[in-house]
Design a protein around this nucleic acid. Sequence first.
DNA 1: TTCGCACGGACTGTCAACCATTTCCGGGGT
DNA 2: ACCCCGGAAATGGTTGACAGTCCGTGCGAA
Lengths: 230, 230
Amino acid sequence: METKIEPISLVDTVTKRLEAAIINGQLAPGERIREQVLAVEMGISRGPLREAIRRLEGRRLLERTANIGVRVAELSPQKLDELLTVREALEGMACRLAAERISDDEVAQLRALLDSHAELKDVSSGAGYYQKSGDFDFHFRIAKASENGFLMSMITGDLYDLLRVYRYRSSTMQGRAGAALDEHRTIVEALARHDPDGAEAAMRKHLRNARIHSQLAVQQMEMAAKAEAN
Amino acid sequence: METKIEPISLVDTVTKRLEAAIINGQLAPGERIREQVLAVEMGISRGPLREAIRRLEGRRLLERTANIGVRVAELSPQKLDELLTVREALEGMACRLAAERISDDEVAQLRALLDSHAELKDVSSGAGYYQKSGDFDFHFRIAKASENGFLMSMITGDLYDLLRVYRYRSSTMQGRAGAALDEHRTIVEALARHDPDGAEAAMRKHLRNARIHSQLAVQQMEMAAKAEAN
DNA sequence: TTCGCACGGACTGTCAACCATTTCCGGGGT
DNA sequence: ACCCCGGAAATGGTTGACAGTCCGTGCGAA
């Protein structure tokens, strides 16, 4: 028996559907959720739905006010900045640990990944792909190489999901692809040298740039929105 | 109207009771939880109990296997080490941010706090108090001074709760009180200088020492247990 | 007109009973 | 000794009901 089928509960699927709905904007930030309505829409009963909501509550995707209802978490540029700062701390540490433990094989895989990115960068339609799976893959592999279960689940799980809710597109998208690739290479080289300090510093710098860049982008968006309002 | 009374739901109280039961060991690690039994014991119905369980699941205090049941999270020295490593990353970052933003007033409060610790250290029965509220207070204030909501809630909430489940007693308890106090002072001085790098480094060093020390303590305990088994 | 207040609908919070499905355990039979 | 099968028990999910709270509406009074 190769594939051990693991039964998926309704709560799990509902949780994912809710999560997806929040991420793609079907449920707008701040929007109120009514249990009965949603339960009927999804064709389930209130029980599992409530349990799913509790989970997302714990992950800060939903906020509940007693006797009032549940709302989709409100976002703000400031909160995004805070989140990205936490990411700096966690991924920096992950990168440090990875530098101590990473194998030559894993380093080779990372290099190959970056090479493929370099090629895609030239393709006009490539940028989308780059962001979508490539960049995540890079950070994901490093988190995994840290061999710290908590760190990994936070980086690739909770944190990543939250960032998606914030509609955060890795700032590599916003004209930083070239710079990001260079930074990625710097990180990999530090990992290859098994240089914890260098690796952490490189990752921190990379994410700090991404964070600052994203804040600038947000500010520009707000400026544009304000200009349009006049 | 100062205190706006906010209604507490059954789920909230149940969550806290479960949490407390896990922390103080009434529910042993790895122990299985049966919904119906527990629901009857607590005098509630299965609904709210299940919702509370889902929450603690999200906080990794409980682990669920589909169709089998819920168990209290299993602990291991390795996981504790991983957790303390995450703490290093988060509190290090918090300390860095705090150094940039902390006010003279807050610095003065921290100094006063450490002075009171220094006095207590001499009192024989003081060690317990020192750990119980004092050490937490120190780290709590710094997390707060970081002015990063996510960081703070992680450090003083999720992370702290998990550590309590691991029965982790800040290693200041284990004969490190004196050294810890010195390290605390180093941290505060860096904060007073508004020196982010120094503050982060000092906090990281402090927590690294605590982590290593705790691992040593765990090893000793295991050695002792093994010796006793013979 | 405007403020205040009571009424009623709507929604959350909780409970209870019920059924389906799966797991677990023990008693067979081979 | 091993395997298989049946029943007990626990989880997973559904339904329906009801209490409590919140909120908007509309009426009445200043």
